[in-house]
């Protein structure tokens, strides 16, 4: 079953800027892979519950205390950022977005 993908739309959703050539190549590869992956649709899964996680663990609680060894200073965090201003991450204007 051939898969028809609007690859430009998918790339926009994923926030990845691609050239026309790159879009065409990724579109082709993704269609091939999805066609193979679509084999899962051939299986009868009526009444089968999905498994999103291999462990039956639920509600993994820990004590509500701060572990000082795991706390990072604000400056350490800000030092990782490509651009900061005062104590904030700095980004280009957001309101012109699309």
């Amino acid at each position: 079953m051939p898969i028809d993908i609007d690859i430009a739309h998918v790339a926009r959703l994923a926030r990845i800027h691609l050239s026309e050539d790159e879009l065409a190549e990724h579109g082709r590869h993704c269609a091939d892979i999805l066609e193979h992956a679509a084999k899962v649709q051939a299986l009868d899964t009526e009444g089968i519950q999905p498994t999103s996680h291999p462990l039956p663990l639920v509600n993994a609680f820990r004590d509500d205390v701060v572990s000082p060894a795991r706390v990072l200073a604000r400056d350490v965090i800000l030092d990782q950022a490509p651009a900061v201003e005062d104590v904030y991450f700095r980004v280009p204007p957001a309101l012109e977005d699309e």
């Binding site: 999805l34 299986l43 089968i48």
Partner: peptide
């Protein structure tokens, strides 16, 4: 891109949702 497609509206059940059921099998 593959993951974004599999999770996107209109394809979720047929791809990702079905894959999770196959995982159960």
């Amino acid at each position: 891109l593959l993951g974004t497609y599999a999770l996107s509206a209109g394809h979720f059940d047929a791809f990702y949702g079905q894959a999770l059921k196959v995982r159960s099998l």
